[in-house]
Design a protein around this nucleic acid. Structure first.
Lengths: 412, 412
DNA sequence: AATTTGTTTGTTGAGACAACCAATTAATAG
DNA sequence: CTATTAATTGGTTGTCTCAACAAACAAATT
């Protein structure tokens, strides 16, 4: 009961800070004495702090000045990392959350699991030392991975692009940090990140679609990540869109990600050029279309290159068809489009909107907006921060501040 | 708090009755005094009753005999109706819930909204008089419709097959019954019905797919109907499966329901016969394939008719592809297949399973079972009962027993 | 003086705990 | 074999704690 109300106060503080006790009481419907008591506890726990008085004469009329409250930025720090296919990324934020430190490092899957994990650990350790300087308490560690995760025990079940299988990441990390550990799918975290700190703020039912090397997805329902029964929901990329389509890495044919992904885009362009069509991209890559990158494609599109625009039109159409299907099936409030392909959002989104108008049921499509993700490369790590943030907001009374950060420093 | 615990007790009673107070305490983790107090209140409110002692010597060992508790069948009665495209159906059940009374009536949309509503009201009224004889208290009225419903106010937004739009069914019913009114989509209710009383008992994350005239769907997530943001989720039938496919009633092309529905099945068969292929169905319908019905098709399939088997194979493949996509996207525990087409389940399900094996991601498909719906024609009304049941279990202390049934009897 | 903020003080309600009574089975003594 | 007793489980009665709430009040402002 008290835990629930503490959490309610924290949530309202997050969304409305700075705000007074009286205002919190009104918002939450709780009695003001109750709010006072809860706030007192939160201040003691250092999650909340007073930040002076409401400036007098701010149009509020007569009465005693209100004491404004905010979440305490130095309540603790959060570590969030991502294991990408060819990079590691770690950020450390305070509770504001502002980034205190960040670092990215190139890897490749051939380095081997153990080496990559050690690198990740070293980065996290560096982030930790920066974090504890100002914030003292480690609130949690989140790690996003490009694969299926069994949330319950942080087991990475299957990451085809890393060629990893059944890696107990959660257990490994638990051995090094005396704080809650979250391991989750990269797109799921990114979805939550957009919900907390990005384009989806204020929306409780969000579909996130991340198109990059492949096509991943995340569902936020009621403000929480929707995990299917085995925690492996929202693999939109492997919905069959064309039963006789291109072969997919997963072994099936015509998966959505064979139509909408960086790979699909490049394939279309290469085929076009291969068939003798002219394109700015040939010059931009000096004839080596193996060097294609999404930014290059966007540049070509802006320059009006016909083949590129056509490719984006085709990809956008497929993206739109899939989104319309999902909108009909799930009736979300907002669809957020992210991933590296979202750099081409200016060209893709109008096509998507058009397709959604054509194929979405009237009521569903009218209730749904489509937006570009705010966080690009950082989407996942920011989502990890959001995930820890969420865990702390949900049960602020269970954080053990004393021994919250205690790292086994041997052999790191 | 108390409300929550009352609800917890009710749920455990539903799932484990008959059961003793001590066992409830153990299951819920509540203190046994608390359980006693809660049970006492529930007995006073007539939702629960004692049903004698646990038979001695039932392998339980020593100790005082336990008093067994169950939900009280005559706690009240539930009215549930369905407005179909060509029928009305109403049942009245007690709180067991056992059917006390039921009736079905043919209609057709041309009769007009007001006439159909009056017929529905008359049926509900008949059910009510049967219900109050034994059970006294009306616990709620549920009505399922083949269309989009805004749950909040029971507004039927759009029912293409009835050609109704913006009908305030909830408000109308509220004027006649002094009890909670639920108006919801037919497939959503059916999904909940399978969860409470059918093939999906014990599964908390269920996809329900109903193939009949069209293809509808329902999602049960965490034991509750998943409504999208506007309460219009799970319109699986209008996911685009083939961008250039057949024209659908909704105006788009290649919707799933153009591939998997009674209409799609009959179309395939008629085309086959039209192309000169032999089929038992020609004889069975005496050459008039306009008379096709699903039972006839099933009969032909059982007799080994090649065209029929081929048709079911094709439909089953499309069904399987769609289910695989949904399984990948939503990772449910169970997929339940219902609707009139489920009569052909023996022929369709193996094909579906096969397609699921091919197209489902390994982890998802392994976590997901596919089952036939238990309730056929009654799925929706039973779901309506479940919906009311759920509402009562959720807040047993808010039911006003005194004036719960008070019907405006004028002009009915 | 009126108004708004926030605290102090006391009340209410709900669940937890301990002790107790009740009803049964199992063991044991005669 | 029977009567008695111990052990065990079911359920209730009082007491305690804790959280939310209400009313009164103090402080700071217009």
């Amino acid at each position: 009961m008290r835990q629930i109300n503490l959490s309610v106060i924290m949530h309202h503080l997050r969304e409305n800070a700075p705000v007074s006790r009286a205002a919190l009481a009104e918002m939450t419907g709780l009695n003001k004495t109750t709010v006072s008591s809860l706030v007192h506890e939160l201040i003691e726990r250092k999650f909340v702090r007073e930040v002076g008085f409401e400036p007098p004469g701010s149009g509020r009329g007569v009465g005693r000045l209100a004491v404004l409250l905010t979440l305490n930025p130095v309540a603790g720090y959060i570590l969030s990392g991502e294991i990408g296919v060819d990079f590691l990324s770690v950020i450390c934020t305070d509770f504001a959350p502002e980034t205190i430190w960040r670092h990215t490092e190139a890897i490749n899957p051939d380095m081997g699991q153990q080496v990559i994990f050690d690198h990740l650990l070293a980065l996290l350790h560096q982030g930790l030392s920066h974090g504890c300087e100002t914030c003292n308490t480690l609130l949690g560690v989140a790690v996003g991975v490009p694969g299926l995760v069994d949330q319950a025990n942080g087991m990475l079940l299957f990451a085809p692009n890393l060629r990893w299988e059944n890696v107990p990441l959660g257990a490994w990390l638990q051995g090094y940090f005396e704080a809650p550990i979250i391991v989750d799918n990269e797109a799921n975290l990114a979805a939550l990140g957009e919900h907390y700190f990005g384009a989806a703020q204020g929306y409780e039912d969000v579909l996130y679609i991340s198109a990059g090397v492949g096509l991943g997805g995340g569902i936020v329902h009621g403000g929480r990540i929707y995990t299917g029964v085995t925690g492996f929901g929202a693999e939109f990329g492997h919905m069959t869109m064309d039963p006789e389509g291109e072969l997919c890495n997963c072994g099936n044919r015509g998966c959505w990600e064979t139509q909408v992904s960086q790979r699909a885009l490049f394939r279309y362009l290469r085929r076009g050029v291969g068939q003798g069509r002219k394109s700015l991209l040939s010059e931009m890559t000096e004839g080596n279309l193996g060097r294609l990158t999404v930014p290059l494609v966007v540049e070509a599109a802006r320059a009006g290159d016909a083949l590129t625009l056509e490719a984006l039109q085709v990809i956008g159409t497929h993206l739109g068809i899939g989104i319309a299907s999902l909108v009909n099936a799930l009736n979300p409030e907002l669809v957020v489009f992210g991933g590296i392909l979202s750099l081409a959002g200016d060209f893709l989104l109008p096509v998507v909107e058009n397709e959604l108008q054509r194929r979405g049921l009237r009521w569903n499509r009218n209730a749904t907006q489509v937006a570009l993700a705010r966080h690009g490369f950082d989407a996942c790590v920011i989502g990890g921060v959001a995930r820890i943030f969420q865990a702390v907001l949900a049960e602020p009374d269970t954080i053990r501040r004393e021994n919250a950060w205690k790292m086994v420093t041997e052999n790191v």
